Simulated scan of single mutants.
Amino acid sequence: MTDTPVRITVSGRERALLRAVAAGRCQFRGGCEPVLLVDGLACADWSVARRLVESGLVETPDPRVPLAPARLTEAGSALLTTG
């Protein structure tokens, strides 16, 4: 068994959202289903935001925190710098 890194493919829309997170333009509004805000507005494509969290590119938000900055994981940062 080898430890081959998993390659994650992202769409243009997902890459744009990752760039917005990296630029500090995104926050998560807490709750049972956290909402990603971009420039203070709810992200219209909630499935993209969910996929980025589930794929480990954006840190999982704490649902108990009312409003917190969205942050890239190491994998998310690496994807932006290499691709």
Rank of each mutant, 00 (worst) to 15 (best):
L80S: 05
V53G: 04
S77C: 07
T73V: 12
E54T: 03
S77L: 08
W46H: 15
A68Y: 01
R64K: 14
V21G: 06
V10D: 08
Q27A: 14
L57Q: 06
L18T: 03
P63R: 02
S77P: 00
V35T: 13
R71G: 10
R25F: 07
R29P: 02
S11T: 09
A78C: 12
D62R: 06
V6I: 09
R71E: 15
A42Q: 14
V21K: 09
S11H: 07
L41M: 13
A22M: 04
L36Y: 07
V10A: 09
S47Y: 14
L79A: 10
A23M: 01
E54L: 02
L37K: 11
D3K: 15
F28D: 07
T60D: 09
S47M: 13
F28W: 07
A44D: 00
Q27R: 15
A75F: 03
L37F: 11
E74G: 13
R71H: 13
W46M: 14
L41E: 14
T81P: 08
A23L: 03
R51L: 04
Q27C: 12
S55D: 15
V38E: 06
R25N: 07
A78I: 11
G83F: 00
G31F: 04
A23Q: 00
L72Y: 11
L72C: 09
E54G: 01
M1C: 05
L17S: 02
V6D: 13
A68T: 00
R50Q: 07
P66H: 10
L80P: 06
G56Q: 09
A42C: 13
L17P: 00
A68W: 05
L67D: 13
R7H: 05
A20C: 01
G30Y: 08
E54I: 01
A68F: 05
P66R: 14
W46A: 15
G31N: 05
A22G: 05
S47P: 08
L57H: 03
G56V: 08
V58M: 06
T60R: 11
L37H: 12
R29V: 00
T73L: 10
G40N: 02
R19V: 14
D62V: 01
A78D: 10
V35C: 11
A68R: 02
R19Y: 13
A20P: 03
L18A: 09
T4C: 12
L41R: 15
C26H: 07
V10K: 03
D45T: 12
T4A: 14
G12Q: 10
L37S: 09
R51P: 01
I8R: 09
C43G: 02
A68C: 04
G76E: 08
V6E: 14
I8A: 07
V10Q: 03
G56E: 11
V58A: 08
R51D: 07
Q27V: 09
I8M: 02
A20T: 05
T81A: 12
V53M: 03
A70D: 13
V35Y: 11
R64T: 15
A78W: 12
P63M: 00
